[in-house]
Design a protein around this nucleic acid. Sequence first.
DNA 1: GGTATGATTGACT
DNA 2: GTCAATCATACCA
Length: 187
Amino acid sequence: MVDDYFGRDAVTVARAMIGATLLVDGTGGVIVETEAYSRDDPASHSYSGESRRNRSMFGPAGRAYIYRSYGIHWCLNVVCGAPPGGHAVLIRAIEPIAGIDLMRRRRGCEAIDRLCSGPGRLGQALGIGPLHDGLELAEAPFSFRPPVAAAPIIAGPRIGITRGADRPWRFGLAASPFLSRPFPAEV
DNA sequence: GGTATGATTGACT
DNA sequence: GTCAATCATACCA
């Protein structure tokens, strides 16, 4: 089940995760924005091979890869693809559904459309930290449920990268108010 | 050994 | 629009 879903290539998994439900210790909601990163992708942390930081990316699919962004934020990825690995999907935005009050306190923010809209904000709202690195999404404290029905998906270039910027590997739930930023097509 | 860069965000002009 | 916060990693000497 886990391999059938997360064992596919990063782009396929990134699209398939739009509309899925993700909870961490009972906080979270519906995934509305993702980005794909692959082993031979200049923008990927795995591009230069395995290191201390990215070792989770080279482990089994279906586990979390957590990294520190700009020395400040914790960002959540899901490892995917087949061995030897190096592929992952960055979760960039979630529509808050569960544990909203707790997420507001963690974020120090009232606006619901800024609670989990952005990889750093999402990590803070869900209480993500280095202890989650390498954990299975199918087991506590995580809870992952694939989409019930097919979601209308929009694609565009990934955000905040310089190399590999031409790959349209950012995916979102069309017209969602909870995207971290609008897609070029809907500006 | 030193230094520049980044899958970001929030505050400020 | 600009810029600081803050640190692991990459790259160069």
